[in-house]
Amino acid sequence: MKQLVILSGKGGTGKTSVTAAFAHLASLGPFADQVVLADADVDAANLQLVLRPQLREQEEFRGGQVALIDQDTCVRCGDCESVCRFAAIDENTGDYVVDPIACDGCAACVYQCPTGSIAMQEQVVGTFSVSDSRYGPLYHADLFPGGENSGKLVTLVKQRARARALDDQRQLLLVDGPPGIGCPVISAVSGADLALMVTEPTVAGIHDLRRTLDTVRHFGVRALVCINKADLYPAGVQEIESYCHAHGITTLGSIPFDLTVADAMVAGEAITSYRPGSPAGLAISAVWERLTATLMDVETLAN
């Protein structure tokens, strides 16, 4: 089983639209019925909007705790406020109260309270779901707005998806990753065989691509690049290509700027099934062909 994660650094470069198209294309070729999908962008989980899957299971995700002060036994000494490094405890007309949004869950206040008046309370910060989509089982999650521990939720989504792929002997785990380079990205990259960067030839896209490639390399995962919205800025395409060339990173091709992608999103379909002959649809199909060749090439993956 191979694990492919789609990343970008900068948001909005087209990760999810490309992932959905890959899911569709995989269902047509040698990976038909061989795919498990995982949406690792848990605070903006959009793959389900395209795949419109049937929900099968859902459970609560408990991710961390917050402090709660018992006002009946509190002697209002203020020790909790002074040890808190997250400015999560405020004095409010003599009473000390915890701001649950600011609380980091470290429990430092619990251990410093002289009267034992503070306890930690577990928080439900999201939901974890398993669904059936047109193109295979989908593992996904929704972090509640402002929730913590998105990295742990990503890890949960990926672990379960991976277990399913192994159980069903499916050959490909396709992971739609989050933007950025922080904890959810690290969780999304860990264990991947290959990371495909969907970038765009914009000054911001290129800046963030470099940081993401460094992150992927830091975790020892092989990266490939494809350039979306390529015709927006040809000089940017050249810059990306020469950067990749200099760093020994394979580029798998370009996808033109095509508003049909937005129409496909509204229709709740992958671009390659909605308008297979559209400029973006054709280009993504070509990228997918090159990508599957790389995925099939076990020796390449071992490098």
Binding site: D43, G147, P184
Partner: peptide, 14 residues
């Protein structure tokens, strides 16, 4: 702000 809707966004808004 950063994208997403988790703790870094909350911290930016506070």
């Amino acid at each position: 702000a950063p994208p997403g809707a988790s703790c870094p966004v909350v911290e930016t808004m506070r």
